[in-house]
Structures are given as C-alpha cells and as structure tokens.
Amino acid sequence: MKKWIVGLFSFMLPLSVMAAGGNVHLDKANNDLTDQASLQRGAKTFMNYCSACHSTQYQRYQRVATDLGIPDDLMKENLMFDPKAKIGDLMTNAIPADSAAKWFGAPPPDLTLVARVRGVDWLYTYLRSFYADPSRPFGVNNVTFPNVGMPHVLEGLQGIPQPVYTTTTVDGKEHQAVTSTKVEKLGELTAEEYDNTVRDLVNFLEYSGDPVKLERHSLGWWVMAFLAIFTVIVVLLKKEYWRDVH
C-alpha cells in the first residue's frame, strides 16, 4: 500500500509542477474551437516551428486532417515533413530522444495534452513572454516561465523582445524583476499579427488535447433535451397511474 501511494505521488508531482504558473498575470487567449481556419493556421504554425522537437504523438495525421477540413493530399504535401510517414501514422517528432536530451538537457515534452495541463491562457501568455537574456544557454528567458530551457522558436516572427524591469523595495532594499517585455525590432509580423498567430497555435493545441470537445458539447444538449422530455413523460405517467388513488 505504501509503495502504491509513493508511486502515485511520484506520478502526480510532475503534473503539479507543470501546472504551476506562479503569480504572473495571464492574458486571455479567447480561443474559438469552431473557427476551422484558425485551427488550420495553428496546425501550420505547429508543424513548421514546433514539430521538429515536440510531438503530438497521441494524434494521427489523418484524424487531424479530417477534423480540420484539410484534404489528405494537402496534408501530406504541406504538413507532413517526414517522407516515410503515412497519413495514418501518429504525429511523432523528428528529433531522437537521446539527441534531444544531450542538446537540451531533457527530451522536449509531447504537447498533445499541454493545453489541458497548463491551460490555454498560460500557453498564450508564455509564447508572448520571451525576452533576450545573454546569460541563458539559448540567449532568451521567459517572464511566465523563468529560466526556461527552450529557445524562442518564434523569434523570427515576433522579433527580439527586450525585458522591462520593475523596481520594488522590500525591507529598505531595492529589487529588480522582469515583469513584461517590449519588441524594439519587429520580425516578420506586427505585434497584432504575432498575437493572432500565437492564438491560432494555442487554439490548435487546445483542440489536440480534446479533439471531441465540440462533439461532446453538442451531444450534451441533445442529452439534456431528452432528459427534459423524458421528465415530462414520467410526470404525466405518474399522474395517470395515481389519478384514482388521489
């Protein structure tokens, strides 16, 4: 029994650490899973900028193509970069786990369920919170995730954010902390365009974590309607059966 409890705690601890977001203010992602065009753009961004290191190995290319309204031939041509991959394969990443561990210190995590673990607002804020930090291995840090271990892969789109410091006084001593960022030299996109690109990416990751969410919600309304009609029938039957008794 003791070993079972220890094992369960060991499994849950990484999840609790991942879910911790600190005291950073989180911006609202305002995702829309019904926006198929946004999901398609998000899938494109993920495959072009994230999939080399991160997998969504609990999804299949064909299921994603079907759900997002992408023809199989276009999926193969534009979003499947492994020439050996088939449309029915799982969406694994290209980088070997041992090489990733050597380069990054640990293999990059699978992102299929990251939106469910972290939350969409956390992801949206995190991807917009990188800033230049020469002391870090990849030259960047993150306001939402201090001492982050990954590069800013979307830097070419956003530009190079610079840190904005806030000074606070505690016990008569001044302390500086990075509380926000500003982009002095834009990348390929304007600030608004970059925010929209991140929103599309987070939208896709939210879909990845729960592909049947919309279908489940739609089915829920039918179930509620059935229960309402069934309740009326039950009440009428009760009145009919007990009419002579009362």
Rank of each mutant, 00 (worst) to 15 (best):
W222C: 09
R116T: 11
V17Q: 05
N142P: 02
Y124C: 05
I87A: 02
L237H: 06
T169N: 12
R60G: 14
L154G: 01
V153R: 12
V183L: 05
Y207W: 15
M150S: 03
R63Y: 06
K76H: 06
Y126D: 10
V24R: 02
S99Y: 07
V202C: 10
E206P: 04
V232T: 08
G88I: 05
Q57S: 14
G139L: 07
A37N: 13
C53T: 00
Y61I: 00
S10M: 15
M224N: 09
Q57W: 02
D72P: 01
K86W: 00
L26Y: 07
L111I: 03
L79G: 02
Q176A: 10
N93I: 00
V232L: 14
D35F: 04
Y241V: 15
Q57E: 14
E192K: 12
N78K: 15
M80R: 05
M91H: 00
T197K: 13
R128G: 03
N23W: 09
M150T: 04
G220F: 12
H246K: 15
K28M: 08
Y241N: 07
S10G: 15
S180L: 03
Y207M: 03
W242R: 11
D82L: 01
G149E: 06
Y49A: 10
I233S: 07
L214D: 09
T92A: 10
V245R: 14
I233G: 03
P108E: 02
N93P: 00
N142E: 01
W221G: 06
L205E: 09
Q40H: 01
D89M: 04
L201Y: 03
I229M: 13
P96F: 01
N93M: 01
F130A: 06
V198Q: 05
S218D: 15
A177W: 02
S16Y: 10
E215F: 08
D171T: 02
G187H: 03
R128C: 08
F9W: 08
D72L: 11
R118T: 04
Y61A: 09
F226D: 02
R41E: 03
W222D: 10
G139H: 04
L186D: 11
G88E: 11
Y131S: 02
A52Q: 10
I87K: 02
F11T: 13
R128M: 09
V148A: 06
A177C: 01
E184K: 09
K238F: 15
A43I: 04
L227Q: 09
R128E: 10
A97M: 05
V17E: 05
K3A: 14
A65V: 05
T56P: 00
A20S: 12
W122H: 14
Y126N: 11
K3S: 11
L68C: 02
L214V: 13
M47H: 01
A225N: 04
N48H: 14
G119K: 05
G105S: 01
T112Q: 06
E193R: 13
D35A: 09
Y241A: 11
F81E: 08
E188D: 13
L123S: 03
A101E: 09
N142K: 05
D89C: 07
P108F: 04
D35H: 06
Q158K: 11
A37P: 01
L205Y: 08
P211H: 09
M150L: 06
E192H: 06
E77H: 11
N78I: 08
H175K: 15
F130N: 01
V117K: 09
L227M: 14
T92K: 10
A191V: 14
Y49H: 14
S129L: 04
H246L: 14
T125E: 12
S135F: 04
W242A: 10
G209N: 07
